[in-house]
């Protein structure tokens, strides 16, 4: 594995990363949160889209591994002066950095960037395509809640995960639909008909538009997707009321889950739209564990890609 562009990993690759993340996760309990593994390496966070949590999570991960981390955002840089993507990344590449963590609004942008420059590239979200570290952190948080300290070496075999909401615009859903089945999970996709992507029949997942049926099946985990108002170009549901009526995790639906189903959300949450506060703040909610897992998983990815020789 030279880059991390997709969550389409083999089971062995995924478990190796999750196990390294388990070892990295211990740093949260320490007073001295610094490991020397990436001393002398430089990582650029190149974000062409707004992001607070993913960018800061990658920044913390790199810094805890002693890498020098530089943040470059699309706004305020020469990108907003109309510089071509290729010129931007080859310029940063020529400065002698070791890795680029990249978020871009165009699906597939990290793949072409990886073909232009010799450095390793980590996809931190590309358009409506993929967000592989989000899928890894979701798998990590889920595995940890299910298996605890005995997580190492395990997959998510037989774990029933439902992914609900605006699947069409969700790179989180796409990456999870690749990674979770590779780990043995049984995935169901549910959302309004207008928000299910064409070709969903080819995904390694069941799909339906009936959210109430999914709720009543009491899956082991229910991942609520953010309604991405900024990414929608047309009208996909007539009103917020209709969306809440059909596909929101309301207090009433949350009660019907029975308390055993783990509730996940990639954040930032639209409370009261796709998820109610009762569900988001419940003991069954994994939301903050997902955030913590994000740092551990990103440390594992940076370690895996950058700690060894990077010229092979």
């Amino acid at each position: 594995m030279r880059h991390l562009l997709t969550a389409a990993l083999t089971r062995d690759e995924a478990i190796e990363l999750l196990d390294i993340a388990e070892d990295m996760d211990q740093i949260h309990e320490r007073d001295q949160k610094k490991l020397p593994a990436l001393r002398g390496r430089t990582v650029v966070n190149l974000f062409f889209e707004d992001s607070t949590r993913t960018r800061s999570s990658f920044e913390i991960a790199g810094k805890w591994l002693s890498a020098d981390v530089i943040n470059v955002s699309g706004k305020g840089s020469s990108v907003s002066k109309g510089e071509d993507l290729r010129d931007t990344v080859t310029t940063i590449s020529a400065m002698g950095v070791d890795g680029i963590v990249m978020r871009h609004g165009a699906s597939g942008a990290p793949n072409v960037v990886a073909s232009w420059i010799p450095q390793i590239v980590v996809n931190a979200g590309d358009g409506t395509h993929e967000h592989p570290t989000q899928a890894l952190l979701d798998a990590f948080a889920l595995r940890r809640r299910i298996h605890g300290d005995a997580s190492r070496g395990k997959g998510l075999d037989g774990v029933r995960v439902a992914i609900a909401g605006d699947v069409l615009h969700s790179r989180v859903a796409r990456s999870n639909a690749l990674l979770l089945p590779a780990l043995g999970a049984e995935v169901t996709i549910v959302g309004p008909p207008s928000m299910l992507p064409p070709g969903i029949g080819t995904w390694q997942a069941a799909h339906t538009t009936d959210f109430d049926e999914v709720v009543d099946s009491r899956p082991d985990a229910l991942m609520m997707l953010r309604v991405q108002l900024e990414r929608q170009t047309g009208t996909f549901v007539p009103s917020a009321g209709e969306y809440i009526g059909g596909w929101s995790l309301t207090p009433e639906r949350f009660a019907r889950l029975g308390g055993e189903t783990l509730v996940m959300h990639p954040g930032p949450m639209n409370r009261g739209l796709e998820i109610s506060s009762v569900a988001a703040d419940a003991a069954a909610s994994l939301v903050l564990e997902q955030v913590r897992a994000g740092v551990s998983v990103r440390m594992a990815v940076l370690y895996r890609l950058l700690a060894g020789r990077t010229d092979s």
């Binding site: 370690y303 700690a307 060894g308 020789r309």
Partner: peptide, 21 residues
């Protein structure tokens, strides 16, 4: 005590797997 992250030959070899501390 896992010492992998502190080894002086990390950058000379392929990435080594880590172990729990």
């Amino acid at each position: 005590l896992d010492v992998t992250m502190h080894r002086d030959d990390l950058a000379r070899t392929g990435t080594r797997p880590t172990h729990p501390t």
